[in-house]
Write a protein that binds this DNA or RNA. Sequence first.
DNA 1: CCCGTAATGTACGAACCAGTACGTTATTTG
DNA 2: CAAATAACGTACTGGTTCGTACATTACGGG
Lengths: 220, 220
Amino acid sequence: MAAPSSDEVATSGSERIRDADRTRAEILDTAAREFAEKGFDGARVDEIAAKTRTTKRMIYYYFTNKDQLFVEVLERAYTVIRSLEQNLDVDHLDPAEAIRQLAGLTFDHHESHPDFVRLVSIENIHRAEHIARSNALSNLANPALDVLTRILARGREAGQFREDVDALDVHMAISAFCVFRTANRYTFNAIFGRDMLDPALRDHHRRMVADMLVSYLTTR
Amino acid sequence: MAAPSSDEVATSGSERIRDADRTRAEILDTAAREFAEKGFDGARVDEIAAKTRTTKRMIYYYFTNKDQLFVEVLERAYTVIRSLEQNLDVDHLDPAEAIRQLAGLTFDHHESHPDFVRLVSIENIHRAEHIARSNALSNLANPALDVLTRILARGREAGQFREDVDALDVHMAISAFCVFRTANRYTFNAIFGRDMLDPALRDHHRRMVADMLVSYLTTR
DNA sequence: CCCGTAATGTACGAACCAGTACGTTATTTG
DNA sequence: CAAATAACGTACTGGTTCGTACATTACGGG
Protein backbone atom coordinates (compact mmCIF):
# COMPACT_ATOMS: atom_id res chain seq x y z
CA MET A 1 0.00 0.00 0.00
CA ALA A 2 0.97 3.65 0.16
CA ALA A 3 4.25 4.39 1.86
CA PRO A 4 3.67 6.05 5.22
CA SER A 5 6.10 8.84 5.88
CA SER A 6 8.90 7.64 8.11
CA ASP A 7 8.50 9.80 11.18
CA GLU A 8 4.74 10.12 11.01
CA VAL A 9 3.64 10.12 14.64
CA ALA A 10 -0.01 10.48 13.73
CA THR A 11 -0.92 11.39 17.28
CA SER A 12 -4.46 12.49 16.62
CA GLY A 13 -4.46 14.49 13.45
CA SER A 14 -2.14 13.85 10.59
CA GLU A 15 -1.91 17.25 9.03
CA ARG A 16 -1.54 16.01 5.51
CA ILE A 17 -4.42 17.01 3.29
CA ARG A 18 -4.16 13.85 1.25
CA ASP A 19 -3.77 10.63 3.17
CA ALA A 20 -4.74 7.44 1.42
CA ASP A 21 -4.71 5.32 4.57
CA ARG A 22 -6.79 7.74 6.56
CA THR A 23 -9.32 8.19 3.78
CA ARG A 24 -9.62 4.44 3.22
CA ALA A 25 -10.05 3.78 6.92
CA GLU A 26 -12.62 6.53 7.31
CA ILE A 27 -14.64 5.12 4.43
CA LEU A 28 -14.50 1.63 5.93
CA ASP A 29 -15.61 2.85 9.35
CA THR A 30 -18.50 4.84 8.00
CA ALA A 31 -19.54 2.08 5.62
CA ALA A 32 -19.50 -0.47 8.45
CA ARG A 33 -21.85 1.69 10.50
CA GLU A 34 -24.11 2.40 7.55
CA PHE A 35 -24.33 -1.22 6.38
CA ALA A 36 -24.96 -2.41 9.95
CA GLU A 37 -27.64 0.22 10.33
CA LYS A 38 -29.54 -0.27 7.09
CA GLY A 39 -28.49 -3.58 5.59
CA PHE A 40 -26.64 -4.03 2.32
CA ASP A 41 -29.48 -2.99 0.01
CA GLY A 42 -30.76 -0.37 2.41
CA ALA A 43 -27.40 1.37 2.71
CA ARG A 44 -26.72 4.15 0.20
CA VAL A 45 -23.30 4.80 -1.23
CA ASP A 46 -24.15 8.50 -1.43
CA GLU A 47 -25.05 8.51 2.25
CA ILE A 48 -21.82 6.77 3.22
CA ALA A 49 -19.88 9.34 1.21
CA ALA A 50 -21.79 12.20 2.82
CA LYS A 51 -20.85 10.99 6.29
CA THR A 52 -17.21 10.96 5.30
CA ARG A 53 -14.84 13.86 4.85
CA THR A 54 -14.34 12.65 1.30
CA THR A 55 -16.58 12.00 -1.69
CA LYS A 56 -18.32 9.11 -3.39
CA ARG A 57 -15.66 9.16 -6.06
CA MET A 58 -13.13 8.01 -3.46
CA ILE A 59 -15.27 5.02 -2.46
CA TYR A 60 -15.13 3.75 -6.02
CA TYR A 61 -11.48 4.71 -6.29
CA TYR A 62 -10.56 2.47 -3.36
CA PHE A 63 -13.26 -0.22 -3.44
CA THR A 64 -14.43 -0.39 -7.07
CA ASN A 65 -18.07 -1.09 -6.16
CA LYS A 66 -20.60 -1.46 -3.37
CA ASP A 67 -20.19 -5.22 -3.09
CA GLN A 68 -16.42 -5.04 -2.73
CA LEU A 69 -16.85 -2.32 -0.12
CA PHE A 70 -19.05 -4.65 1.87
CA VAL A 71 -16.53 -7.47 1.50
CA GLU A 72 -13.80 -5.33 3.01
CA VAL A 73 -16.10 -4.11 5.77
CA LEU A 74 -16.73 -7.74 6.67
CA GLU A 75 -13.05 -8.63 6.52
CA ARG A 76 -12.24 -5.85 8.94
CA ALA A 77 -15.08 -6.78 11.31
CA TYR A 78 -13.97 -10.41 11.50
CA THR A 79 -10.35 -9.42 11.98
CA VAL A 80 -11.25 -7.43 15.09
CA ILE A 81 -13.04 -10.30 16.79
CA ARG A 82 -10.32 -12.77 15.84
CA SER A 83 -7.62 -10.66 17.41
CA LEU A 84 -9.64 -10.47 20.62
CA GLU A 85 -9.87 -14.25 20.70
CA GLN A 86 -6.11 -14.45 20.39
CA ASN A 87 -5.79 -13.06 23.90
CA LEU A 88 -7.56 -16.06 25.30
CA ASP A 89 -5.34 -18.06 27.64
CA VAL A 90 -7.24 -20.66 29.61
CA ASP A 91 -4.98 -23.67 29.29
CA HIS A 92 -4.06 -23.46 32.94
CA LEU A 93 -7.66 -23.50 34.16
CA ASP A 94 -9.90 -26.36 35.16
CA PRO A 95 -11.81 -27.42 32.00
CA ALA A 96 -15.20 -26.37 33.38
CA GLU A 97 -13.83 -23.02 34.45
CA ALA A 98 -12.15 -22.63 31.07
CA ILE A 99 -15.53 -23.12 29.38
CA ARG A 100 -17.02 -20.46 31.63
CA GLN A 101 -14.26 -18.04 30.71
CA LEU A 102 -14.67 -18.69 27.02
CA ALA A 103 -18.44 -18.32 27.19
CA GLY A 104 -18.06 -15.10 29.17
CA LEU A 105 -15.61 -13.63 26.69
CA THR A 106 -17.82 -14.55 23.75
CA PHE A 107 -20.82 -13.08 25.53
CA ASP A 108 -19.01 -9.83 26.26
CA HIS A 109 -17.77 -9.50 22.75
CA HIS A 110 -21.19 -9.87 21.17
CA GLU A 111 -22.67 -7.57 23.78
CA SER A 112 -20.19 -4.82 22.99
CA HIS A 113 -20.16 -5.24 19.20
CA PRO A 114 -23.77 -5.20 18.02
CA ASP A 115 -22.69 -3.89 14.63
CA PHE A 116 -20.61 -6.99 14.06
CA VAL A 117 -23.58 -9.19 14.87
CA ARG A 118 -25.78 -7.21 12.53
CA LEU A 119 -23.25 -7.38 9.69
CA VAL A 120 -23.07 -11.15 10.02
CA SER A 121 -26.83 -11.32 10.07
CA ILE A 122 -26.99 -9.26 6.89
CA GLU A 123 -24.36 -11.42 5.25
CA ASN A 124 -26.45 -14.50 6.03
CA ILE A 125 -29.49 -12.95 4.38
CA HIS A 126 -27.25 -12.69 1.34
CA ARG A 127 -26.19 -16.30 1.73
CA ALA A 128 -22.57 -15.45 2.54
CA GLU A 129 -21.90 -14.47 -1.06
CA HIS A 130 -19.43 -11.79 -0.01
CA ILE A 131 -17.45 -14.09 2.26
CA ALA A 132 -17.24 -16.56 -0.61
CA ARG A 133 -15.66 -13.83 -2.73
CA SER A 134 -13.06 -13.04 -0.07
CA ASN A 135 -9.90 -15.08 0.18
CA ALA A 136 -9.07 -13.48 3.51
CA LEU A 137 -12.35 -14.63 5.02
CA SER A 138 -12.83 -18.07 3.59
CA ASN A 139 -9.35 -19.12 4.71
CA LEU A 140 -9.60 -17.60 8.15
CA ALA A 141 -9.11 -19.97 11.06
CA ASN A 142 -10.80 -19.33 14.36
CA PRO A 143 -8.48 -19.16 17.40
CA ALA A 144 -11.42 -19.73 19.72
CA LEU A 145 -11.94 -23.10 18.06
CA ASP A 146 -8.42 -24.25 18.81
CA VAL A 147 -8.76 -23.16 22.39
CA LEU A 148 -12.06 -25.00 22.63
CA THR A 149 -10.62 -28.14 21.13
CA ARG A 150 -7.92 -28.21 23.79
CA ILE A 151 -10.39 -27.54 26.61
CA LEU A 152 -12.66 -30.33 25.47
CA ALA A 153 -9.77 -32.77 25.15
CA ARG A 154 -8.61 -32.00 28.69
CA GLY A 155 -12.14 -32.25 30.03
CA ARG A 156 -12.65 -35.63 28.41
CA GLU A 157 -9.30 -36.97 29.61
CA ALA A 158 -10.19 -35.94 33.14
CA GLY A 159 -13.43 -37.85 32.78
CA GLN A 160 -15.38 -34.67 33.43
CA PHE A 161 -16.84 -34.03 29.96
CA ARG A 162 -19.10 -36.07 27.75
CA GLU A 163 -17.60 -37.57 24.59
CA ASP A 164 -20.25 -36.91 21.97
CA VAL A 165 -19.66 -33.22 21.26
CA ASP A 166 -16.99 -31.50 19.24
CA ALA A 167 -15.58 -28.03 19.53
CA LEU A 168 -17.72 -26.69 16.72
CA ASP A 169 -20.92 -27.85 18.42
CA VAL A 170 -19.97 -26.06 21.61
CA HIS A 171 -18.85 -22.97 19.75
CA MET A 172 -22.18 -22.95 17.94
CA ALA A 173 -24.21 -23.30 21.12
CA ILE A 174 -22.37 -20.42 22.78
CA SER A 175 -22.52 -18.21 19.68
CA ALA A 176 -26.19 -18.98 19.17
CA PHE A 177 -27.10 -17.76 22.63
CA CYS A 178 -24.95 -14.65 22.45
CA VAL A 179 -25.89 -13.75 18.89
CA PHE A 180 -29.59 -14.17 19.52
CA ARG A 181 -29.64 -11.70 22.39
CA THR A 182 -28.32 -9.02 20.05
CA ALA A 183 -29.62 -10.05 16.65
CA ASN A 184 -33.20 -10.77 17.73
CA ARG A 185 -33.37 -8.06 20.35
CA TYR A 186 -35.99 -6.05 18.49
CA THR A 187 -38.59 -8.69 17.63
CA PHE A 188 -38.14 -10.21 21.08
CA ASN A 189 -38.81 -6.89 22.71
CA ALA A 190 -41.72 -6.07 20.42
CA ILE A 191 -43.43 -9.39 21.03
CA PHE A 192 -42.51 -10.29 24.60
CA GLY A 193 -41.73 -6.86 25.98
CA ARG A 194 -38.38 -8.03 27.27
CA ASP A 195 -35.53 -5.54 26.97
CA MET A 196 -32.27 -7.37 26.35
CA LEU A 197 -30.32 -4.24 27.21
CA ASP A 198 -31.38 -4.33 30.85
CA PRO A 199 -28.14 -4.71 32.85
CA ALA A 200 -29.61 -7.15 35.36
CA LEU A 201 -30.83 -9.40 32.57
CA ARG A 202 -27.46 -9.10 30.93
CA ASP A 203 -25.65 -10.45 33.99
CA HIS A 204 -28.23 -13.17 34.42
CA HIS A 205 -27.80 -14.33 30.83
CA ARG A 206 -24.05 -14.15 31.07
CA ARG A 207 -24.12 -16.67 33.90
CA MET A 208 -26.79 -18.66 32.10
CA VAL A 209 -24.75 -19.50 28.98
CA ALA A 210 -21.81 -20.61 31.06
CA ASP A 211 -23.99 -22.71 33.36
CA MET A 212 -25.85 -24.22 30.44
CA LEU A 213 -22.74 -25.34 28.65
CA VAL A 214 -20.94 -26.63 31.71
CA SER A 215 -23.94 -28.58 32.97
CA TYR A 216 -24.44 -30.01 29.49
CA LEU A 217 -20.81 -31.02 29.10
CA THR A 218 -20.55 -32.56 32.55
CA THR A 219 -23.73 -34.59 32.19
CA ARG A 220 -23.22 -38.11 30.94
CA MET B 1 -49.92 -12.06 -19.11
CA ALA B 2 -51.58 -14.60 -21.35
CA ALA B 3 -55.29 -14.77 -21.10
CA PRO B 4 -56.35 -17.87 -19.21
CA SER B 5 -57.92 -20.31 -21.60
CA SER B 6 -61.52 -21.16 -20.93
CA ASP B 7 -60.80 -24.80 -20.17
CA GLU B 8 -58.46 -23.86 -17.30
CA VAL B 9 -57.79 -26.96 -15.30
CA ALA B 10 -60.02 -27.15 -12.27
CA THR B 11 -57.22 -28.14 -9.93
CA SER B 12 -59.02 -27.65 -6.68
CA GLY B 13 -60.31 -24.19 -6.70
CA SER B 14 -62.89 -21.73 -7.62
CA GLU B 15 -63.38 -21.27 -11.33
CA ARG B 16 -64.10 -17.60 -10.96
CA ILE B 17 -61.81 -15.40 -13.00
CA ARG B 18 -61.89 -12.77 -10.29
CA ASP B 19 -61.35 -14.00 -6.80
CA ALA B 20 -60.22 -11.47 -4.25
CA ASP B 21 -59.24 -14.06 -1.64
CA ARG B 22 -57.22 -16.15 -4.03
CA THR B 23 -55.42 -13.13 -5.48
CA ARG B 24 -54.65 -11.73 -2.05
CA ALA B 25 -53.35 -15.07 -0.83
CA GLU B 26 -51.24 -15.58 -3.93
CA ILE B 27 -49.66 -12.17 -3.51
CA LEU B 28 -48.91 -12.87 0.16
CA ASP B 29 -47.35 -16.24 -0.65
CA THR B 30 -45.16 -14.87 -3.38
CA ALA B 31 -44.21 -11.81 -1.37
CA ALA B 32 -43.22 -13.98 1.61
CA ARG B 33 -40.89 -16.02 -0.59
CA GLU B 34 -39.45 -12.96 -2.26
CA PHE B 35 -38.88 -11.01 0.97
CA ALA B 36 -37.35 -14.08 2.63
CA GLU B 37 -35.11 -14.54 -0.39
CA LYS B 38 -33.87 -10.98 -0.89
CA GLY B 39 -34.67 -9.03 2.24
CA PHE B 40 -37.04 -6.08 2.46
CA ASP B 41 -34.97 -3.62 0.45
CA GLY B 42 -33.66 -6.28 -1.90
CA ALA B 43 -37.12 -7.51 -2.83
CA ARG B 44 -38.78 -5.82 -5.81
CA VAL B 45 -42.48 -5.16 -6.00
CA ASP B 46 -42.30 -5.64 -9.75
CA GLU B 47 -40.66 -9.02 -9.27
CA ILE B 48 -43.29 -10.14 -6.77
CA ALA B 49 -46.00 -9.09 -9.21
CA ALA B 50 -44.30 -10.92 -12.08
CA LYS B 51 -44.27 -14.16 -10.08
CA THR B 52 -47.98 -13.83 -9.49
CA ARG B 53 -50.85 -14.42 -11.88
CA THR B 54 -51.86 -10.83 -11.27
CA THR B 55 -50.18 -7.42 -11.60
CA LYS B 56 -48.42 -4.84 -9.50
CA ARG B 57 -51.54 -2.75 -9.48
CA MET B 58 -53.24 -5.44 -7.38
CA ILE B 59 -50.50 -5.42 -4.78
CA TYR B 60 -51.16 -1.76 -4.14
CA TYR B 61 -54.91 -2.33 -4.40
CA TYR B 62 -54.80 -4.81 -1.51
CA PHE B 63 -51.79 -3.70 0.50
CA THR B 64 -51.40 0.04 -0.21
CA ASN B 65 -47.58 -0.06 -0.11
CA LYS B 66 -44.48 -2.22 0.21
CA ASP B 67 -44.19 -1.76 3.96
CA GLN B 68 -47.77 -2.77 4.63
CA LEU B 69 -47.28 -5.80 2.38
CA PHE B 70 -44.34 -6.85 4.53
CA VAL B 71 -46.38 -6.30 7.69
CA GLU B 72 -49.06 -8.69 6.46
CA VAL B 73 -46.46 -11.21 5.32
CA LEU B 74 -45.05 -11.17 8.86
CA GLU B 75 -48.50 -11.46 10.43
CA ARG B 76 -49.23 -14.51 8.36
CA ALA B 77 -45.86 -16.12 9.12
CA TYR B 78 -46.28 -15.68 12.87
CA THR B 79 -49.84 -16.98 12.75
CA VAL B 80 -48.65 -20.25 11.24
CA ILE B 81 -46.10 -20.94 13.96
CA ARG B 82 -48.52 -19.93 16.72
CA SER B 83 -51.15 -22.35 15.52
CA LEU B 84 -48.55 -25.13 15.54
CA GLU B 85 -47.71 -24.35 19.14
CA GLN B 86 -51.38 -24.61 20.06
CA ASN B 87 -51.21 -28.35 19.44
CA LEU B 88 -48.70 -28.75 22.21
CA ASP B 89 -50.01 -30.92 25.03
CA VAL B 90 -47.34 -31.92 27.50
CA ASP B 91 -49.08 -31.31 30.81
CA HIS B 92 -49.26 -35.04 31.46
CA LEU B 93 -45.52 -35.59 31.00
CA ASP B 94 -42.66 -35.53 33.48
CA PRO B 95 -41.30 -31.94 33.49
CA ALA B 96 -37.93 -32.91 32.05
CA GLU B 97 -39.58 -34.93 29.32
CA ALA B 98 -41.96 -32.05 28.65
CA ILE B 99 -38.96 -29.75 28.10
CA ARG B 100 -37.52 -32.27 25.67
CA GLN B 101 -40.77 -32.38 23.73
CA LEU B 102 -41.03 -28.61 23.59
CA ALA B 103 -37.42 -28.23 22.47
CA GLY B 104 -37.91 -30.90 19.83
CA LEU B 105 -41.03 -29.26 18.46
CA THR B 106 -39.35 -25.86 18.34
CA PHE B 107 -36.34 -27.40 16.64
CA ASP B 108 -38.48 -29.11 14.02
CA HIS B 109 -40.45 -26.01 13.30
CA HIS B 110 -37.41 -23.85 12.65
CA GLU B 111 -35.84 -26.61 10.64
CA SER B 112 -38.85 -26.88 8.36
CA HIS B 113 -39.59 -23.16 8.06
CA PRO B 114 -36.35 -21.44 7.05
CA ASP B 115 -38.30 -18.65 5.37
CA PHE B 116 -39.92 -17.76 8.68
CA VAL B 117 -36.52 -17.56 10.35
CA ARG B 118 -35.22 -15.36 7.54
CA LEU B 119 -38.22 -13.03 7.71
CA VAL B 120 -37.70 -12.55 11.44
CA SER B 121 -34.02 -11.93 10.83
CA ILE B 122 -34.88 -9.31 8.24
CA GLU B 123 -37.39 -7.69 10.56
CA ASN B 124 -34.70 -7.42 13.23
CA ILE B 125 -32.38 -5.65 10.82
CA HIS B 126 -35.21 -3.16 10.47
CA ARG B 127 -35.54 -2.93 14.24
CA ALA B 128 -39.01 -4.51 14.31
CA GLU B 129 -40.57 -1.38 12.85
CA HIS B 130 -43.18 -3.39 10.98
CA ILE B 131 -44.23 -5.41 14.01
CA ALA B 132 -44.62 -2.15 15.90
CA ARG B 133 -47.04 -0.98 13.22
CA SER B 134 -49.12 -4.14 13.47
CA ASN B 135 -51.79 -4.47 16.12
CA ALA B 136 -52.15 -8.15 15.35
CA LEU B 137 -48.48 -8.80 16.07
CA SER B 138 -47.75 -6.57 19.02
CA ASN B 139 -50.70 -8.02 20.94
CA LEU B 140 -50.00 -11.62 20.06
CA ALA B 141 -49.51 -13.96 22.98
CA ASN B 142 -47.28 -16.96 22.65
CA PRO B 143 -48.92 -20.30 23.53
CA ALA B 144 -45.51 -21.91 23.92
CA LEU B 145 -44.77 -19.50 26.73
CA ASP B 146 -47.84 -20.54 28.71
CA VAL B 147 -46.94 -24.17 28.25
CA LEU B 148 -43.39 -23.44 29.39
CA THR B 149 -44.57 -21.54 32.43
CA ARG B 150 -46.61 -24.55 33.54
CA ILE B 151 -43.76 -26.99 32.92
CA LEU B 152 -41.33 -24.88 34.92
CA ALA B 153 -43.78 -24.52 37.81
CA ARG B 154 -44.30 -28.28 37.96
CA GLY B 155 -40.58 -28.91 37.73
CA ARG B 156 -39.85 -26.53 40.56
CA GLU B 157 -42.62 -27.95 42.75
CA ALA B 158 -41.20 -31.42 42.25
CA GLY B 159 -37.84 -30.09 43.36
CA GLN B 160 -36.34 -31.09 40.00
CA PHE B 161 -35.75 -27.67 38.44
CA ARG B 162 -33.69 -24.70 39.52
CA GLU B 163 -35.56 -21.60 40.66
CA ASP B 164 -33.63 -18.77 39.03
CA VAL B 165 -34.97 -19.02 35.45
CA ASP B 166 -38.24 -17.90 33.99
CA ALA B 167 -40.14 -19.21 30.96
CA LEU B 168 -38.88 -16.43 28.72
CA ASP B 169 -35.25 -17.28 29.49
CA VAL B 170 -35.80 -20.91 28.57
CA HIS B 171 -37.78 -19.97 25.48
CA MET B 172 -34.95 -17.70 24.43
CA ALA B 173 -32.29 -20.33 24.95
CA ILE B 174 -34.18 -22.87 22.86
CA SER B 175 -35.06 -20.35 20.14
CA ALA B 176 -31.49 -19.08 20.02
CA PHE B 177 -30.11 -22.51 19.30
CA CYS B 178 -32.73 -23.41 16.72
CA VAL B 179 -32.73 -20.02 14.99
CA PHE B 180 -28.95 -19.91 14.75
CA ARG B 181 -28.73 -23.21 12.89
CA THR B 182 -30.93 -21.77 10.16
CA ALA B 183 -30.20 -18.06 10.25
CA ASN B 184 -26.41 -18.34 10.39
CA ARG B 185 -26.16 -21.42 8.23
CA TYR B 186 -24.34 -19.64 5.42
CA THR B 187 -21.59 -17.80 7.26
CA PHE B 188 -21.05 -20.85 9.45
CA ASN B 189 -20.63 -23.04 6.42
CA ALA B 190 -18.42 -20.53 4.61
CA ILE B 191 -16.09 -20.09 7.56
CA PHE B 192 -16.10 -23.49 9.28
CA GLY B 193 -17.15 -25.69 6.40
CA ARG B 194 -19.91 -27.24 8.46
CA ASP B 195 -23.14 -28.00 6.62
CA MET B 196 -26.10 -27.54 8.93
CA LEU B 197 -28.33 -29.37 6.48
CA ASP B 198 -26.53 -32.67 7.04
CA PRO B 199 -29.19 -35.05 8.43
CA ALA B 200 -26.83 -36.69 10.94
CA LEU B 201 -25.84 -33.31 12.34
CA ARG B 202 -29.48 -32.34 12.44
CA ASP B 203 -30.36 -35.29 14.68
CA HIS B 204 -27.34 -34.66 16.85
CA HIS B 205 -28.29 -31.03 17.39
CA ARG B 206 -31.90 -31.93 18.02
CA ARG B 207 -30.81 -34.08 20.96
CA MET B 208 -28.28 -31.48 22.00
CA VAL B 209 -30.76 -28.62 22.64
CA ALA B 210 -32.98 -30.87 24.69
CA ASP B 211 -30.04 -32.25 26.69
CA MET B 212 -28.61 -28.80 27.22
CA LEU B 213 -31.80 -27.34 28.61
CA VAL B 214 -32.67 -30.32 30.78
CA SER B 215 -29.20 -30.58 32.27
CA TYR B 216 -29.18 -26.85 32.89
CA LEU B 217 -32.60 -26.84 34.55
CA THR B 218 -31.89 -29.86 36.72
CA THR B 219 -28.53 -28.55 37.95
CA ARG B 220 -28.66 -26.62 41.21
C1' DC C 1 12.10 23.01 -7.55
C1' DC C 2 9.80 20.73 -11.07
C1' DC C 3 7.43 16.88 -12.98
C1' DG C 4 4.86 12.48 -12.80
C1' DT C 5 1.53 10.28 -10.46
C1' DA C 6 -1.42 9.33 -6.64
C1' DA C 7 -5.29 11.30 -4.64
C1' DT C 8 -9.30 13.95 -4.96
C1' DG C 9 -13.60 16.77 -6.53
C1' DT C 10 -17.68 17.89 -9.74
C1' DA C 11 -21.13 16.93 -12.50
C1' DC C 12 -23.73 13.89 -14.83
C1' DG C 13 -26.19 9.72 -16.94
C1' DA C 14 -28.77 5.62 -17.44
C1' DA C 15 -31.20 2.28 -15.24
C1' DC C 16 -34.13 1.19 -11.80
C1' DC C 17 -38.16 1.21 -8.87
C1' DA C 18 -42.08 2.47 -5.76
C1' DG C 19 -46.21 4.17 -6.55
C1' DT C 20 -50.30 6.11 -9.60
C1' DA C 21 -53.66 7.97 -13.26
C1' DC C 22 -56.80 6.21 -15.95
C1' DG C 23 -59.35 2.89 -18.22
C1' DT C 24 -61.74 -1.78 -18.45
C1' DT C 25 -64.28 -6.01 -17.29
C1' DA C 26 -66.41 -9.35 -14.23
C1' DT C 27 -69.64 -10.09 -10.56
C1' DT C 28 -73.24 -9.04 -7.57
C1' DT C 29 -77.42 -7.02 -6.12
C1' DG C 30 -81.78 -4.89 -6.34
C1' DC D 1 -81.39 -7.54 -16.57
C1' DA D 2 -79.42 -3.16 -15.53
C1' DA D 3 -76.88 -0.40 -12.51
C1' DA D 4 -73.36 -0.34 -9.11
C1' DT D 5 -69.25 -1.76 -7.56
C1' DA D 6 -65.48 -4.79 -6.81
C1' DA D 7 -61.60 -6.59 -9.19
C1' DC D 8 -58.33 -6.01 -12.43
C1' DG D 9 -54.78 -4.28 -16.44
C1' DT D 10 -51.74 -0.82 -18.96
C1' DA D 11 -48.83 2.62 -19.25
C1' DC D 12 -46.47 5.97 -17.19
C1' DT D 13 -43.75 9.19 -13.86
C1' DG D 14 -40.82 11.30 -10.69
C1' DG D 15 -37.40 10.52 -7.83
C1' DT D 16 -33.62 7.79 -6.58
C1' DT D 17 -29.13 5.43 -6.91
C1' DC D 18 -25.03 3.04 -8.54
C1' DG D 19 -21.47 4.14 -11.13
C1' DT D 20 -18.40 7.12 -14.31
C1' DA D 21 -16.26 10.81 -17.46
C1' DC D 22 -13.59 14.43 -16.90
C1' DA D 23 -11.09 17.88 -14.58
C1' DT D 24 -7.90 19.19 -10.81
C1' DT D 25 -4.61 19.44 -7.03
C1' DA D 26 -1.28 17.77 -3.58
C1' DC D 27 2.92 15.27 -2.84
C1' DG D 28 7.22 12.85 -3.27
C1' DG D 29 11.22 11.55 -6.05
C1' DG D 30 14.88 13.05 -8.74
